[in-house]
């Protein structure tokens, strides 16, 4: 039996396949377990529309005093598309997104004007007709789950904090914080690449950088689930990356728990040059790639919070707890070789 198990072990290693026991040992959360033990347990269905609709989230956040990018306009019906021209006319830069879109689908980022044409983040330019077709698609429900009719939200373009200029190829880097029962548990930064078309979407080839909850320092970076050390386009080394306003970011994220009552939440933030950290959107089904970016399984942290006696602490205390217990800086030292 011994040779058989070693043969199996070798074959698995050769094809870079991990054994379930090894993943379990490292505390890695599986998709099935996320769905069953966390999302369906802590995110009641009736609350999901709050985050599935970005317009609702935005209005809710504004009401709760949480910082969000400025809302410029909403196109609700196909007939409203006529008004689009007058809304867009005075704007140099703006973002159009479907209120119920998921995974960054259907988001149009216009960074400038070229006469009559609108210039996308990638440099490609679009006519007004192309934009109104996109808006029409959004309203038709092309990007929403189940093809339900949707509304298009136009908001101000975020002026990215120049700190990250070297780490991102166009686009605005965003920060994803997983908030479990009000405690920030894991964070990463998502940096756009040429491959991701200026979008901070890991699935499309953006780089994910794991962030130390205690400090906001970078831990490790991955692209397409595989570790990288430097940005594929700018060549900058990620190990020097440090996110400013870290404490505020954690507090803003933690506040989203009170705002939505959702227990397992992915909070997406951006750093605006002028306004500081802003909440971009909330996600009730945050992905698992954050574990790869952090080089850590998230499960032990979730279980630690579940085992707490008292959860309804003030935001400051929750953030302090997370920073104290989930910081990695201490055991980080031996890794660099």
């Amino acid at each position: 039996m011994g040779w058989l198990s070693s043969f199996v072990q070798n074959t698995l290693t050769k094809n870079s396949i991990a054994t379930p026991s090894r993943l379990k040992e490292s505390g890695i959360l599986s998709m099935n377990s996320r769905n069953l033990n966390y999302i369906s347990r802590y995110n009641p269905r009736r609350l999901l529309p709050l985050v599935d609709d970005k317009l609702t989230t935005k209005r809710m956040a504004e009401k709760a005093g949480v910082d969000v990018p400025k809302l410029i306009g909403v196109i609700e019906y196909q007939s409203d598309i006529r008004k689009l021209k007058s809304i867009l006319e005075p704007l140099e830069q703006f973002v159009i997104k479907p209120a119920k879109g998921s995974g960054g689908k259907g988001i149009l980022v216009i960074t400038g004007r070229d006469g009559d044409r609108y210039v996308k983040a990638s440099g490609e330019s679009l006519s007004f007709n192309a934009i109104s077709r996109d808006v029409s698609n959004i309203l038709g429900g092309l990007y929403s789950l189940g093809g339900k009719s949707d509304v298009a939200v136009i908001e101000s373009l975020i002026v990215a904090d120049p700190i990250f200029k070297d780490y991102s190829f166009e686009g605005v880097p965003d920060i994803r914080v997983i908030v479990f029962r009000g405690f920030p548990v894991m964070a990463m930064m998502r940096l756009a690449t040429r491959k991701s078309d200026g979008k901070a979407n890991l699935h499309q080839g953006a780089v994910g950088v794991g962030l130390d909850i205690a400090t906001g320092n970078s831990l490790r970076s991955v692209q397409h689930d595989l570790p990288v050390n430097t940005h594929p386009d700018t060549g900058h080394n990620f190990s020097t990356l440090k996110v400013p306003h870290w404490h505020k970011i954690l507090c803003l994220s933690a506040a989203c728990h009170e705002m939505t009552s959702l227990g397992y939440l992915g909070v997406d933030l951006v750093l605006d040059k002028n306004l500081g950290p802003l909440i971009l959107e909330l996600n009730a089904r945050p992905g698992l790639a954050i574990q790869i970016a952090n080089g850590q399984g998230i499960k032990p942290r979730l279980e630690m919070i579940e085992s707490l006696r008292k959860h309804d602490l003030p935001i400051e205390e929750r953030v302090a707890f997370s920073q104290q217990h989930f910081g990695v800086s201490i055991m980080q030292t031996p890794q660099k070789a």
Binding site: I17, A18, D225, Q291, I292, G295, G297
Partner: peptide, 11 residues
């Protein structure tokens, strides 16, 4: 098992 391999490896 394949997706998280690089993660376990480094951990």
């Amino acid at each position: 098992l394949k997706r998280f391999y690089p993660l376990v490896h480094s951990v």
